[in-house]
Amino acid sequence: MSDKKTIIFAEDTVHIAKLLKFKLEKEGFNLIHFPSGVGVTEGVIKYKPDLVMLDIMMPVKDGLTVLKELKSNPSIANIPVILLTANSHEEYVVKGLQLGAIDYILKPFASAELMLRIKNILKMR
C-alpha cells in the first residue's frame, strides 16, 4: 500500500477542484474528487481517507448534510473534515463546527494557505 495520504474533496466547481488536485498531487497527496455531496459518505467508508474537504453549497446534497452523515457513523467519525464556503455564507460555518468540522476556509481563498492548513491538520493526526 502506498504511503500517500488520501484526501476526499467534494466541490461542484470543477476547475477549482482540478487545480487543487494538481497542486495536492504535486505535494504527494492522493485526491479523490466528488462533484457533489452524492456518494461522498460511501466514498469515505470505502477509501478511509486521511482528510475530507467539503464545499457547503453543493447541488443535490450539501456539505452540512454530508458532514452529519460522516459524524454519525462511528467507523469514520474521527476523520477530520474541513469546510469550504463562500464569504456570504459565513453563518453556516458555526453550524459546521458544531457538527464536528475541524476547520473552515472561506472563498475566495489563497491556495497556498489551504495547502498549509491541510498539511498542519494531517501533521497533528
Binding site: 475566495p108 481563498f109 489563497a110
Partner: peptide
C-alpha cells in the same frame, strides 16, 4: 471563460 471560476474563488498570490 476558463479563468472565470478562478477569478471568483482565488485570492492572494493566485489572484
Amino acid at each position: 471563460r476558463y479563468l472565470r471560476e478562478f477569478f471568483l474563488m482565488l485570492k492572494g498570490d493566485d489572484f
